[in-house]
Amino acid sequence: MDFFHTIIALLESTIRVSVPLIFAALAGLFTERAGVFDIGLEGKMLGAAFAAGAVAAVTGSVTMGLLAAVLISVLLSLVHGYASITQRGSQIVSGVAINFIVAGSTVILGEAWFRQGGRTPALSGDARFQTIEFPFAEEMRGVPILGPIYSNLLSGHFLLTYVAFAMVPISWWILYRTRFGLRLRAVGENPGAVDTAGISVIWMRYRAVICCGILCGFAGAYLSLAMSAGFVKGMTAGKGYIALAALIFAKWRPFNIMLACLLFGFLDALAIRLQGNPLPIIGQVPVQLMQALPYILTVILLAGFIGKAIPPKAGGIPYVKER
């Protein structure tokens, strides 16, 4: 039974750490499917987390915090859009730039406004997301097997957690079952054809970039309003890049993204749990290996050793109308 409880605890923390990855990877899905590569997920998430923490601390309202996160993230997305869509600059360079600008400004502004070493004040009460307990969660806890699954694994998460998992089928539906989604994917594969059909490639890509901003906003808000009680400098700690890896690992498909994020989240949770504890058969595994595993797996996948990751055809190429 002890083993079972360990597994439940492990899966619970897997869900907790996977949520920002799912939001960010879905965000990347929208832009990259529209042909705009985005390695600025990390920066947008960090900026959103800071905006959420700062505004929630000042206004005491979690909703305002979430709105601020989305607003900042969308603004950063528009900068990326302006540079890479309108100015036809390098999408990679622009993403790198945004990551640095945000990494620096969150510390400087945080320190100037709150003077707590780059943190925002600790949030409590209405300024922070509360966990949602399902009905009868407490009563079910005693029931063997099903009890812990229901009351620990399914119940007791933040609203944003459920939103993240709901966003997976919603994103699938938007991308594969609506006209907007069809056009968005077409812009990423063959923008010339979309242009011929009389649809603005530029505007289509801008809309995709805005979708990305909104989802990154949710990812950031989850970090500073739900997972922790406030913003801590550099709190994304490479999650944006892990999300990018998950997006590639999932071959740019919504349901695969969820699985990839859960896998990477599981590795993360396992690494924390294994710190100092040897595994039954393999023995002591260095924590660093566990931490590097998502990246190593992505490299192996990219090398085509486990399936082939084929990016959207027009990805990374600015659209030039006259040719």
Partner: peptide, 25 residues
């Protein structure tokens, strides 16, 4: 004291943005 060394990171990002991604602006 209000301007820590993270200011450099911002400038670095801005230089990458303006000299790189927005070089044609």
């Amino acid at each position: 004291p209000a301007i820590s060394r993270d200011m450099i990171v911002i400038i670095q990002g801005l230089v990458i943005l303006f000299a790189g991604a927005l070089e044609n602006m």
